[in-house]
Write a protein that binds this DNA or RNA. Structure first.
Lengths: 353, 353
DNA sequence: ACTGGAAATGGTAGCGCTATCAAACGCGAT
DNA sequence: ATCGCGTTTGATAGCGCTACCATTTCCAGT
C-alpha cells in the first residue's frame, strides 16, 4: 500500500503512486485513465491492475484545473414540477461529477424571471446552459441564449432549436403507442386530455393520439377531448366534463401524469372505480405516477439518462467551440417505454354491451 | 479589462489579474476573497472593487486542489419520495458548489441495499455521508458508518445520532402548532393519521398532536387516529375509516403530505368537499402539497436550507477530524412554518350544530 | 525617538493532473 | 545492418489557488 501523506494532512493515492507501482511515468497512467488510444495493451493492463490494487481515484479538481475544461454550466428551470426536476438532477449530477464541471441551478419563475436569470448568468459567467421543458421549447429563450453566444442544450424538447443540440423522445410515437395499447386492451371510446397549448410537445402528443385512433379504425370525437394545462387541477376539471357524459369514455389518456392523477381524483369523486369503470393513463412517469393510488400506467421518458446525455452533448459543444471547430448540433432521440401499473385494465365485457 | 489568455485557449480572470489591478500580492487577494481577518479595511475595499470591476470568479477546482479540502461526499437515500429528494438536492447542490466538494448520489432500496452501498463507498472512498430520512433515523446505518469511521450528518432526523451532527426541525412543536391552528379554526373533532411506526419522527408528530389537543382542552379519541405508512395509499385507506364514521372528524391532520393527498382523494370519493366538509392538512410541504387540488395546508420544513447547512456541518466535521481536533457534534434545529392553502378552513357553523 | 510585538503583506512552493513536445521504441523495406 | 516512419513513452511546465513562513509595516509603551 503505497500511501503518501500530503503536505496538509490528508493521505491519498495519486497518479504518481500508481506510476511508481507499475514502473511507468505518470503520463502513461494518465493516458490509461482517460482511455486514450496510443498505449500498448500490455501497459494498459498493468496500469489498470495497479489502479485497482491501490484503489486509486482521480482527483477531479486537479484534472479540471490541469485540463482547463472546468466548464461552469447552469441549469435553469421555470417548471415547478419537482418530480421531473429531481429525476433530471439525478442524471445531470452523475454526469457532471464524472465530467468535473461546476453546476449551478437557477430557478426562474414568471416570464421576466428568465431575462433576469440570463442577465445574472452573463455577469457571473457560465459556459453553457441546460434547458429542461418548458424552457427548452421557448424560442424566445433560445434566441436570447443565441444572442449571448452561450451554448445550450434542450432536454425533452419537441421543438429543438436548430442552433443547439437536444435530447428527447418522440412524443408523437409515444402517444401513438400508448393509444394503440388502449385500443388493444379493447377500449373504443378513448378520451384525451391535452396539455398546455403553448407547448409543442403537447400538440405532438395529441396528434399521436389522433393518428392511433385513425389507424385503429376509430373516428376521433372532439367531445372526448378535454383541454388541460399540465396541472393536476386542470386534469381534475377536464376529466369532469369527459366522465359525466352519458357515453363517457372507457379510457382517458391524459398527456401528463399530474393531469392523469387529477383525472383519477375526479373519477373517484364521481363514484367510478379506476380501472374497473374507467382506465386512466398518463405520460412522463414522474414520481406522481407512482405516488397516487392506483399507480398510473404511463409513458416513461428516461429523464435521468436524457439529462446526462444532454450535459455530455453540451460539454462537447463547448469544447468544440473553444477549439474553434464548427459544431453541428446533434438531436438525439431516446426510446420511451410504456409502464403498465394499476390504473389501466382491459375493457370489461359488461361495459362493452 | 485585464484578460489573460491561458495556455490552452480559455481566457479567464485570475487572482493575479485582480492583484495586479489593485497593486497588491495575489495572497492578499486570496485573503480578501476568503474573508480572512488580517487585512486592512482599506485594502479589502480596494480588492473588492477590483473583483467587481474585473468580474472575477474564483476557480473552484484550483481552490480545492490547493487547499486540499476537496472532500468526496456521498448522499445516500432509500426513500423514493422524489419531491423531498429534489428539494434536498437543490440545497445540497448549492452548498457543494460553494464548498467545492465532489458529490455522489447513491440510491439504496431494500435493507440489504444499504450494506451494499456502504461497501461501495468504502472501496470507492468517500470522506463523508449525508443521510436524509428515513436513513437518518436508522441506528443501524449510524452504527455501520461509525464502525467505518466515516463522518456523516443527518438531515431532518428526529433521533439524531449522538456521534454525528444533524439538522432538523422540532417535529413535536410543529405538530403541536398545526393542531393548535386547527383548534383555533374552530375544529373540535380532529383526526390524525400516523406515519410509519418505525420512524421516530412519526411518533413525535403524533405526540405533538396529542399535546395540542390536551392544551386545547380536548380529549384525545383513539377512534379518530388512523395508522398510515407515509404513503398516499395508506392515507387513502386510513382516511376511509375516519371519514365514514357517524361522528366523523371535521379536520384531519395527516403526518405527511402524501397521506394528506390520499386522504383528500378519499374525501372526494365519499362525496365530501375539501375544505367545506372536511379540512385536511399535511406535513413537510413537499411538491405533492401544491400539486394536488385543493392545494394542501401543511407544515413547511425548509428542506433546502437544512440540506445546505447539513453539508456545511459535515464538511466542518471532516476538516476538524483531519486536523486531529475533537469534534463535538452540533444538532441544529431550524424553524418550521405553517403554510395555509386551500385544503383548510374555519369550521363552518352548521357543522358545529 | 526607539524598541518590541502584533498586524498586514509578500514570496515561495507546491496541490494532482494533463498539454506539449521530445525521446525512445518497434518494425517493415531497402 | 540501416533507414524511415509511425507508435509508445517520458520529461517538463504549468493550470489557479492557498499553506507556510519570511518580511515589512504599524503603533503602543517607554
Amino acid at each position: 500500500m503505497a500511501r503518501k501523506v500530503s503536505r496538509r494532512g490528508g493521505n491519498i493515492v495519486t497518479i504518481h503512486d500508481v506510476a511508481r507501482h507499475v514502473g511507468v511515468s505518470p503520463m502513461t497512467v494518465s493516458r490509461v485513465i482517460n482511455g486514450e488510444k496510443n498505449v500498448r495493451e500490455e501497459t494498459r493492463q498493468k496500469v489498470m491492475e495497479a489502479v485497482e490494487a491501490l484503489n486509486y481515484t482521480p482527483n477531479l479538481a486537479a484534472r479540471s484545473l490541469a485540463s482547463q475544461d472546468s466548464s461552469r454550466i447552469a441549469l435553469i428551470y421555470s417548471n415547478p414540477s419537482m418530480s421531473f426536476l429531481s429525476e433530471l438532477l439525478l442524471g445531470i449530477l452523475e454526469q457532471s461529477s464524472q465530467s468535473g464541471c461546476q453546476l449551478t441551478i437557477e430557478s426562474c419563475d414568471g416570464p421576466e424571471g428568465v431575462a433576469d436569470v440570463l442577465d445574472k448568468l452573463k455577469t457571473v459567467g457560465v459556459d453553457g446552459v441546460v434547458l429542461p421543458p418548458p424552457l427548452s421549447d421557448s424560442s424566445r429563450v433560445a434566441k436570447a441564449l443565441k444572442d449571448m453566444k452561450l451554448p445550450f442544450v434542450g432536454v425533452a424538447t419537441s421543438r429543438p432549436s436548430p442552433d443547439a443540440p437536444s435530447v428527447s423522445i418522440d412524443d408523437f410515437k409515444a402517444a401513438f403507442a400508448m393509444t394503440s395499447r388502449l385500443i388493444q386492451l379493447g377500449h373504443r371510446r378513448i378520451g384525451f386530455i391535452k396539455g398546455n397549448p403553448n407547448s409543442y410537445y403537447s400538440q405532438l402528443r395529441y396528434e399521436g393520439y389522433v393518428a392511433a385512433l385513425a389507424k385503429g379504425g376509430l373516428k376521433a370525437d372532439e367531445a372526448l377531448v378535454g383541454q388541460g394545462y399540465f396541472t393536476y387541477r386542470s386534469g381534475f376539471d377536464a376529466a369532469e366534463t369527459l366522465l359525466t357524459r352519458a357515453d363517457r369514455p372507457t379510457a382517458v389518456f391524459a398527456s401528463n401524469d399530474d393531469m392523469a392523477a387529477g383525472a383519477v381524483a375526479t373519477a373517484h369523486r364521481l363514484g367510478l372505480d379506476v380501472p374497473q369503470d374507467v382506465t386512466i393513463v398518463g405520460f412522463d412517469d414522474t414520481s406522481m405516477a407512482s405516488s397516487v393510488w392506483p399507480e398510473l400506467t404511463t409513458v416513461r421518458q428516461p429523464i435521468s439518462d436524457m439529462a446526462a446525455l444532454a450535459l455530455k452533448l453540451l460539454l462537447e459543444q463547448i469544447k468544440a467551440r473553444r477549439s474553434g471547430q464548427t459544431y453541428v448540433p446533434i438531436h438525439e432521440i431516446r426510446d420511451f417505454s410504456i409502464i403498465e401499473r394499476q390504473s389501466s385494465s382491459p375493457l370489461t365485457p359488461d361495459l362493452n354491451a
